[in-house]
C-alpha cells in the first residue's frame, strides 16, 4: 500500500470515474480510512448536487420574450428570387412540352423499349437514393433541434 494519502483530484476521480482510476489509488483507498472518508464526503456532495433545485425561467419571462419578438419576418429576397427562378424553369419545360407534345411522343415511340426501361429504372434509383439522403439529413437536423 502507498502510505501517502491521495490528492482530492484522485479521490474525485475515484468517486466519479472509478474505471479510470489508477490501481494503486484504488488499493490505497481500500486500505485507508481517512481517504475513504473523503471519498464518502465527495459521494455525498455529488449526490446532493444532482438534487439541488434548478433555477428556471418563469412563465412571465417567456411571455415577455414572445411579446418582444419582431412580428412575422418578411420572406427574404433570396427566397422570392428562388421561387421566380423555379417558376420560370417550370414554364420553360411545361410550355414547349405542351406545344410539341406530338413530336415528343413520336420520339419516345422510336426509342427502344429496353432503353426506355433503363432510363426509367435509373431515374427511380437516383430518386430513391436522393430521397433517402434527404430523410437522413432531415432526421439529423431534427435530432440537433431535439424535437424528435
Amino acid at each position: 500500500m502507498n502510505h501517502h494519502h491521495l490528492s482530492d483530484t484522485d479521490i474525485q476521480e475515484y468517486v466519479l470515474h472509478r474505471e479510470n482510476c489508477r490501481q494503486e489509488a484504488i488499493a490505497h483507498l481500500d486500505a485507508c480510512d481517512l481517504c475513504m472518508r473523503k471519498a464518502a464526503n465527495y459521494s455525498l456532495l455529488i449526490e446532493a448536487m444532482a438534487l439541488m433545485p434548478a433555477t428556471a425561467v418563469d412563465m412571465e419571462t417567456t411571455a415577455s420574450i414572445m411579446a418582444r419578438l419582431p412580428a412575422g419576418r418578411r420572406r427574404s429576397r433570396r427566397d422570392s428570387v428562388l421561387v421566380c427562378l423555379l417558376a420560370m424553369a417550370g414554364g420553360v419545360i411545361v410550355v414547349p412540352g405542351y406545344l410539341f407534345r406530338r413530336s415528343f411522343l413520336q420520339v419516345l415511340e422510336n426509342v427502344p423499349a429496353l432503353l426506355l426501361c433503363l432510363v426509367v429504372a435509373a431515374s427511380l434509383v437516383i430518386l430513391l437514393f436522393r430521397g433517402r439522403a434527404l430523410l437522413k439529413h432531415y432526421q439529423r437536423r431534427m435530432k440537433m433541434l431535439e424535437f424528435s
Binding site: 434548478a54 433555477t55 428556471a56 425561467v57 417567456t62 420574450i65 414572445m66 419578438l69 412580428a71 412575422g72 419576418r73 433541434l145 431535439e146 424535437f147
Partner: peptide, 26 residues
C-alpha cells in the same frame, strides 16, 4: 423555423431550463 414565433416558443420551452440554470448560477 426561421421567423416562426410558434416554433420559437417551442425552442424556448425546450431550452428554458438550461438557460435558467446558466443565468441563475452566473
Amino acid at each position: 423555423m426561421q421567423g416562426d414565433s410558434r416554433a420559437f416558443e417551442a425552442v424556448i420551452k425546450s431550452t428554458e431550463r438550461l438557460v435558467g440554470q446558466i443565468v441563475g448560477r452566473m
